[in-house]
């Protein structure tokens, strides 16, 4: 396709019940929103032509997101405000776009560039307090690494690399809220709820993670 295309980057939320969608389901839903919005999208060449579209890093099933990203290549320019309003009208509320912008073709793909993910992890339980959660986290971070089992596989995370800054612990409305920023890399993405669960175990807190939200996704060094 020699014609000019316009690379539209969409920021959207994945909230409420729709946080239970898998990454693949979310991708399909976003593509269908673009079709319903009647945006003129570019189609890939090849045996199985499909919409030219790219997605940011996957969210685990059950984790909400406030600033997820996808981008789609358009064959006709539409003003960002119009593109946003058309997309909002054609997307289920739980996946509603919150912003769009055009980005130059030279920018790296979303999955490669968005490596800093900030999460809010809510912990509830009978004796959950921020001090004990904080102590547990400090103990885990002091170890320098965290070994996790997921779907029968054991993985060791180097916390010096995976945690670009210290998690912070606060309290709101009787729940403890842990803010964790994770660096996504070739090793994958450390699940923040696994880190917090380990912290609870370390300080013998009777509690559980009840809600996880990815609050932002940024490139390395974007001041996050």
């Amino acid at each position: 396709m020699a014609d000019t295309t316009y690379r539209l980057r969409v920021t959207y939320g994945k909230t409420g019940r729709l946080r239970f969608l898998s990454h693949l389901e979310t991708m399909h839903a976003c593509e269908r929103s673009v079709r319903r919005a009647q945006l003129a999208y570019a189609v890939t060449q090849g045996f199985n032509p499909h919409m030219k579209v790219g997605f940011g890093p996957a969210l685990p099933v059950g984790t909400a997101g406030l600033a997820e990203r996808y981008e789609v290549w358009l064959t006709r320019f539409v003003s960002p405000s119009e593109a946003l309003s058309r997309l909002r009208e054609s997307t289920p509320a739980g996946l509603a776009p919150v912003g769009v912008l055009y980005v130059p073709e030279s920018e790296k793909a979303l999955a490669a560039s968005l490596t800093m993910a900030a999460y809010e992890v809510v912990v509830d339980g009978p004796d959950v307090g921020s001090d004990r959660v904080r102590a547990g986290l400090e103990a885990v971070v002091a170890d320098g690494s965290l070994t996790l089992e997921h779907k029968g596989k054991t993985k060791v995370y180097d916390l010096a690399v995976c945690l670009p800054k210290e998690p912070t612990v606060g309290e709101t409305q009787g729940s403890v809220v842990v803010d964790v920023t994770v660096r996504i890399g070739p090793w994958g993405s450390l699940r923040p709820e696994a880190l917090v669960a380990e912290a609870l175990r370390r300080s013998s807190v009777q509690g559980a993670v009840t809600c996880v939200t990815r609050t932002s996704l940024d490139p390395e060094g974007a001041g996050a």
């Binding site: 409420g16 019940r17 729709l18 239970f20 969608l21 898998s22 389901e25 839903a29 269908r32 319903r36 099933v61 059950g62 054609s90 997307t91 289920p92 509320a93 739980g94």
Partner: peptide, 9 residues
């Protein structure tokens, strides 16, 4: 879980 959440278009 997508089987049970509704909210489809």
């Amino acid at each position: 879980p997508a089987r049970y959440v509704d909210r489809e278009w």
